[in-house]
C-alpha cells in the first residue's frame, strides 16, 4: 500500500516535470526549470510561468478531480460503472459553455465561457438534487442524473442544430473535445479553489464509503449519516468536475477507468481508492497532455480525444479480465 503511494506520487512528480520542460522552443530541461523558479528577466521565465506552469497545474488538478470524484461516485453507488458525469455535472457545464459561445458572451467577456459553464453545472446539479429528493435512494439519484444529462445534451445539440454561424458551431465542437492549450494562470485561479473545496468534501468520505461496502442499511446502522454522505458526494463532484469542465471542456474516461485500474491494488477498499485514484487521475491526465504535445506538436490534438482513445482500450482489457475471472 505504501509502495503504491510512493509509486503513484513519483509518477505524478515525474510527469509534472516532463510537462513543464516540454515545449516548441528548444530549451534544455535544467534551463527551463531554473527560469521557472528564478526570474531571469528573459522571455523564458514568462513562458514557464504564464504558459507551461498553468497547463501543468490544470492537468494535475483536473486529473485529480476526475479520478477522485470517479472513485467517490463508484464507492457511493457501489457500482464500478459509475462515472462523475453520471449526476449531470459535465453535460450541464458543457451546455453552459455552449450557450456562452453561441451567444457571444465567451467572445466579449474575458471569463465568460468558464463562468457560464460553472453556472450551467450549478443549475444542473441543483435540478438533479431537486428531482432526486433529499432522502431518496441512490437509484433516484442515478435516474435524475441521467434525465438531466440527456436533457442538457439535447439542448446542446439543439444549439448546434440551429446555429446560424458555422464558426461558432466549429468552436463548440472543438471546445467539447476538451483541451488544456492556451490556458493562463487566471484559469488556474478560477478553477483551483473550487477543485480544492471538492477534494476536501470527497476526500473525507473514506470511512463512509468503506461502511457502504455492506449496503446502505448496514452502513446507516453503523452510524453513517447517508444524507450527509449523499450531499458530500454530489457537492464535491459538482465543485471538482464542474470547475474542471469549465476550464478544460469535457474530458471523459479518466473518472471511469482510473478507479477501475487501481481497485485491485488497494485491496478493493473504497476509502483507500479515493487518494489512489486522485493520484492516478493526475498521472493519466498529465501523461495524456504530454502525449497531445509529443504526438502532434503542430496540429491541435484534443486532450479529451486522447483520454478516450487510451481509456476505451484499457476498459476493454478490464472487461476481458473480468470475464476471465468470472469463467
Amino acid at each position: 500500500m505504501r509502495l503504491l503511494g510512493f509509486g503513484l506520487t513519483g509518477l505524478v512528480v515525474l510527469l509534472a516535470l516532463i510537462s513543464l520542460v516540454l515545449g516548441p522552443a528548444a530549451i534544455g530541461p535544467a534551463e527551463s526549470l531554473y527560469a521557472l523558479f528564478t526570474d531571469t528577466g528573459t522571455p523564458l521565465t514568462l513562458v514557464m510561468r504564464e504558459i507551461r506552469l498553468p497547463r501543468m497545474v490544470l492537468a494535475l488538478g483536473i486529473g485529480a478531480s476526475l479520478g477522485l470524484s470517479g472513485a467517490a461516485m463508484q464507492g457511493y453507488l457501489r457500482n464500478p460503472l459509475a462515472d462523475p458525469g453520471l449526476i449531470g455535472v459535465s453535460a450541464s457545464a458543457a451546455l453552459g459553455a455552449v450557450l456562452a459561445i453561441q451567444t457571444g458572451i465567451a467572445a466579449h467577456f474575458a471569463f465568460g465561457l468558464p463562468l457560464c459553464a460553472l453556472a450551467g453545472a450549478v443549475v444542473g446539479v441543483s435540478l438533479v438534487m431537486l428531482l432526486a429528493g433529499p432522502r431518496g435512494s441512490s437509484l433516484t439519484l442515478i435516474l435524475a442524473g441521467i434525465a438531466i444529462s440527456s436533457l442538457a445534451a439535447a439542448f446542446t445539440s439543439l444549439v448546434l442544430n440551429l446555429s446560424p454561424n458555422p464558426f461558432a458551431a466549429n468552436e463548440i465542437v472543438f471546445w467539447m473535445m476538451g483541451s488544456l492549450s492556451d490556458r493562463s494562470m487566471s484559469h488556474v485561479w478560477l478553477a483551483l479553489p473550487l477543485m480544492v473545496v471538492g477534494w476536501a468534501l470527497l476526500g473525507s468520505l473514506g470511512r463512509s464509503l468503506d461502511a457502504l461496502t455492506l449496503g446502505e442499511d448496514a452502513a446507516e446502522a453503523m452510524g453513517i449519516g447517508l444524507r450527509r454522505v449523499r450531499w458530500q458526494v454530489v457537492l464535491g463532484t459538482a465543485a471538482a468536475v464542474g470547475a474542471a469542465t469549465a476550464v478544460a471542456g469535457a474530458i471523459g474516461f479518466v473518472g471511469l477507468v482510473v478507479p477501475h485500474i487501481l481497485r485491485p491494488l488497494v485491496g478493493a477498499r473504497p476509502g483507500a481508492l479515493l487518494w489512489a485514484s486522485a493520484l492516478g487521475g493526475a498521472a493519466m491526465l498529465l501523461a495524456s497532455d504530454v502525449a497531445v504535445r509529443v504526438v502532434l506538436p503542430s496540429g491541435d490534438l484534443k486532450l479529451g480525444v486522447v483520454t478516450a482513445l487510451v481509456g476505451a482500450p484499457l476498459f476493454l482489457h478490464l472487461i476481458y479480465r473480468t470475464r476471465r475471472e468470472m469463467a
Partner: peptide, 21 residues
C-alpha cells in the same frame, strides 16, 4: 447515530458485499 452504533449492531438479511475485499 454513533451512540446507537456502539449500543447495537445490525445484520441485514440481504448479504451485501459490494467490493472484492
Amino acid at each position: 447515530p454513533r451512540a446507537r452504533a456502539k449500543a447495537a449492531a445490525w445484520l441485514p438479511q440481504a448479504r451485501e458485499v459490494s467490493w472484492p475485499v
